[in-house]
């Protein structure tokens, strides 16, 4: 069944009671909460996802609960619990939904050491994925959000999961995080996209999440090969510029953006070497989303012209 099969009152009851298992990419997450902002966020942003009753097994068991202590009377807080244990400090109550998203990222990054995990957005077209590794503030999420409203498939906006078996990307399509002015930028760029409620004054500023395209969610079990690694930088007013990057340098920059390169050891090195061998690496700066879309369209076209997406690892 889909999450949209629940009316909001039914969803509220379910999440307050035994909870609901949400299936996102390869993960099943058992969610329980009584917080209305989380229920609302889920019903807006996760309506296309498969859900099931808690029967037997879930990868992660999470809860969002009100913070205890005296503070609850004058400054209510929310806590993220991973199976009863709080990996983070509590946050102000109105940040409950973003905390759910951040908490889920934590679950994945901390438990999936059988994969190489990069801090990068990743989208796919024509069978090839573009990995966009970048530190916060580089415009990576905005670029990713824009691309997925223009026919690219969302694999992930924050955590790029690389299989150590064959170097393909394991999709984890979840809502795309937008910050500060990029929220308005996206609403203007793609008026039909659905953006959830804004949360102000988080430590990242104002945040909101954009719903992942339905097709991306439905294709969550189809992996993709890496065609390009592109390091984006947003520069206000700058023309879109794509510059070829030396592979050794690109390799090192991907490593700097990996969460667990030292954990995956030799396997990680070999897999990443294979990826860099087979893909093209670029530095990309842009000031306008429309121009950026053109550049990525021609990237995708070049790969199609070059050879059909048939090669296997």
């Amino acid at each position: 069944m889909k999450l949209s099969d629940f009316s909001e009152p039914a969803l509220t009851r379910q999440l307050a009671g035994e909870g609901l298992v949400l299936h996102t990419g390869p993960f099943s997450v058992h969610v329980r909460t009584t917080m209305s902002s989380v229920v609302q966020g889920l019903s807006i942003l996760y309506r296309d996802y498969d859900v099931s009753h808690m029967q037997g097994y879930a990868d992660f068991h999470v809860q969002l609960v009100a913070g205890g202590g005296l503070r609850r009377w004058y400054k209510p807080q929310v806590r993220f619990l991973f199976d009863g244990f709080a990996p983070f400090k509590p946050l102000p109550l109105d940040q409950a939904f973003p905390m759910f998203e951040w908490g889920l990222n934590w679950c994945v990054a901390n438990h999936m050491h059988n994969c190489l995990i990069l801090h990068a957005a990743v989208v796919e077209r024509g069978g090839y994925a573009v990995v966009l590794p970048a530190p916060p503030g580089s415009g990576k999420s905005t670029l990713c959000a824009a691309l997925v409203t223009r026919g690219w498939r969302l694999l992930s906006d924050e955590l790029t999961i690389v299989s150590l078996d064959d170097g393909t990307i394991v999709p984890l399509p979840r809502p795309v995080g937008l910050k500060n002015h990029s929220i308005a930028v996206m609403k203007a760029f793609a008026p039909h996209c659905t953006v959830g409620n804004e949360t102000r004054d988080t430590n990242k500023g104002t945040v909101a999440h954009m719903r992942a395209p339905r097709q991306s969610v439905e294709q969550a079990l189809t992996p993709a090969r890496v065609g390009w690694v592109v390091f984006p930088t947003y520069q206000s007013g700058a023309p879109a510029r794509l510059e070829k990057l030396g592979k050794a340098g690109a390799f090192m920059r991907v490593v700097q953006n990996a969460f667990n390169f030292n954990v995956v050891g030799v396997k990680g090195f070999d897999v990443l070497k294979g990826i860099i061998d087979d893909c093209a690496c670029y530095e990309f700066s842009y000031g306008q989303l429309e121009q950026a879309m053109d550049v990525f369209d021609s990237l995708a076209a070049s790969r199609v012209a070059e050879k059909p997406a048939q090669k296997t690892a």
Binding site: G246, K247, A248, G249, M252, F261, G265, F269
Partner: peptide
């Protein structure tokens, strides 16, 4: 040690320390 080479630029991975160096 594990090696990768692209256009006269090298990356060496040192398994013991877990570090890659260009």
């Amino acid at each position: 040690l594990r090696w990768a080479e692209w256009d006269d630029q090298y990356v060496v991975y040192h398994e013991d320390s877990g570090d890659a160096h260009q």
